[in-house]
């Protein structure tokens, strides 16, 4: 949430559905309250908006904007689930698979992974069309209670914001530029930081993939009871409209 004081309410539409909002609300915040799901990866409840993954791109007033950062406007007509936007989102997700080493069959985040769930939601039923970059990244298991497998990182930055804004620590940060930009830890390795397993940044809900791992709890939740075993990502928002 931006923290901006809310004023008089107004309405706008998303794919023809009338949505209520107040001044200062983003398109995504208004959509969530109205039970309209807009796909997202870098945005997370309780963290400041970043608008970097672009999976939440919608068309507003004929322009492509990030729904998580773009303020809602009275009378605005927003396009969300159009074939064009869905394809664009699927392309983005495919590129995330192409950039990293996402081996869902052996990943402990499988079933709880937002990237995997987003791929299912966007009907990405085959391997990415883009050639895998197969980066060679080492696993940092130096910390006694936490491991970091950056082969699975999608650079969403949620851990960076959680560590800085919620934990008040700054364990994580970005290094590099362009395609080389990566999440890194503030030290030689994770053991060299003040990260703790109880940090919000380390919690399963903050890392959308299997990059940040709390040690020795992998696969403890059986298949069938994992977060996305019983519904598509976003279903809990969409259920508000039912």
């Amino acid at each position: 949430m931006s923290g901006t004081k809310r004023e008089t309410g107004f309405t706008f539409t998303i794919d023809g559905v009338e949505v209520k909002a107040t001044a200062g609300m983003t398109i995504m915040e208004a959509a969530d309250e109205a039970g309209v799901y807009i796909p997202r990866l870098c945005d997370h409840e309780g963290l400041r908006h970043q608008g970097s993954c672009r999976v939440c791109t919608v068309k507003a007033g004929g322009r492509s904007v990030a729904a998580c950062t773009q303020p809602a406007a009275p009378g605005q007509s927003v396009e969300n689930e159009t074939p064009h936007l869905t394809k664009m989102r699927r392309d983005l997700v495919e590129m995330l698979f192409h950039e990293g080493n996402h081996l869902c069959p052996i990943c402990e985040a499988s079933g709880n992974c937002e990237l995997q769930a987003m791929a299912y939601r966007l009907d990405m039923t085959e391997a990415t069309r883009f050639p895998y970059l197969e980066p060679c990244r080492s696993l940092d298991a130096s910390h006694p209670d936490i491991a970091l497998d950056t082969n699975r990182c999608i650079s969403c930055g949620r851990c960076i914001r959680a560590s800085q804004d919620v934990d008040g620590k700054g364990v994580f940060g970005y290094v590099g530029r362009g395609i080389h930009r990566r999440v890194a830890v503030n030290g030689e390795n994770l053991a060299d930081t003040d990260a703790e397993a109880t940090d919000h940044a380390i919690s399963r809900e903050v890392c959308p993939v299997g990059c940040i791992i709390r040690k020795r709890v992998g696969f403890a939740v059986p298949i069938g009871e994992r977060e996305f075993d019983h519904g598509l990502i976003g279903h809990e928002i969409e259920e508000k409209r039912k």
Binding site: I106, E108, L139, I213, G218
Partner: peptide
């Protein structure tokens, strides 16, 4: 190099 609880999977 993989983590021990991943091994059975």
């Amino acid at each position: 190099g993989r983590l021990m609880w991943e091994v059975p999977v």
